[in-house]
Design a protein around this nucleic acid. Sequence first.
DNA 1: CGGTATAAGTAAACAGTGTTGACTTGTCAA
DNA 2: TTGACAAGTCAACACTGTTTACTTATACCG
Lengths: 197, 197
Amino acid sequence: MDLPPAADAADPCAGRVRDREATRRRILASAYELFTSEGYEHVSSRRIAAHAGVNVALINRYFGAKRGLLAEVIAEDAAFPAVFEGDRATLPRRIAEHVTRRTLGEGTPLQRALVHSMGDPDLQSVYQERLQNAIIDPLAACLEGESAHARAALVASLLLGVNAVRRMGGAGPLTAEDPEALTARLTRVIEACVAEH
Amino acid sequence: MDLPPAADAADPCAGRVRDREATRRRILASAYELFTSEGYEHVSSRRIAAHAGVNVALINRYFGAKRGLLAEVIAEDAAFPAVFEGDRATLPRRIAEHVTRRTLGEGTPLQRALVHSMGDPDLQSVYQERLQNAIIDPLAACLEGESAHARAALVASLLLGVNAVRRMGGAGPLTAEDPEALTARLTRVIEACVAEH
DNA sequence: CGGTATAAGTAAACAGTGTTGACTTGTCAA
DNA sequence: TTGACAAGTCAACACTGTTTACTTATACCG
């Protein structure tokens, strides 16, 4: 667990050239790897720096603070899967399948990181923006009628909640059910979330 | 914000009698007040001790660790409101009203603390137990048919998610909607969660 | 080519955290 | 009155994120 640096991209040649962008990327890559595998608040700045083979102070130089590093890691991640694109009629079903896959499987590394450190007030703005851009806004764009954003936010809540419950270890009941039955139920729940009337 | 101790129950008489239980309660009361108003990880052990007019080391003596203190605070809190008791037919509506009240209002102090520090792996077991005992189990007891626990867990996810989204600042869209419309929609969503077929 | 401005990188310190072990001191029973 | 044992204290430990002043390498320009 605490093997020395082991830096992934640390070229053996001790004398590295000074390359701002390369260093930035190195830090970012290490942060991604560590945040997603162990969670934001259980990975220290110094560990990220060591893993990247870089001085601690550079994290703050390049990213302002540790929080900024997470923000960038999140921003780098691809947008929410393209479940929103496609036929409106089957949208709830597609989202439900996505959730089931996530609930039963591992989820993307980033989602793990998100739930790991959800609730940290420092990160509130980071997550808020991400939630809006990656889920609520694109989903609302798919919906017609009034209060599309409210309906989309409801779906986002469900996604987040299921993820959180799973992460908190309360997923036993959820995973116990037959996957297909769970998907079917989720589809109806999501339909209720986005229904127009 | 950082007035000195101000200890609520700190009797002026300097020489306090040594009373294990009283000291424990004092710590617990301070922890409750601070955790619920500022969140678990933003209140330090030393601050709790100072607020209680007590030595820091006593926290660990009496509660093992800071985490144990939170566990006790949570356990002390009354069970989830009695929304689960009553007519099965109106259960979804009652839950929905409860959520709306919470979403628009402040929520109980404890709920604030819960979301504040949700996701902290240290606290996983604490929250998991609480989730099971306070929401999933009692709700499942109200439901008939198969996989009652899975259906209850789904409702719990929704509750948690809505709370989390609100706490993350993404509640704008949710609160924008007419409260009554939101409650009605939530009722239908929860009905879909707990539906038997 | 040599010198220098500027940026990249470094080291050490700061104030804070949770936690621990050895210590003192009050209280109550013999 | 005197022990014993619990309650309470203190100072230290190993960490955390962050900042400051510093050194050093690079690239440009005369």
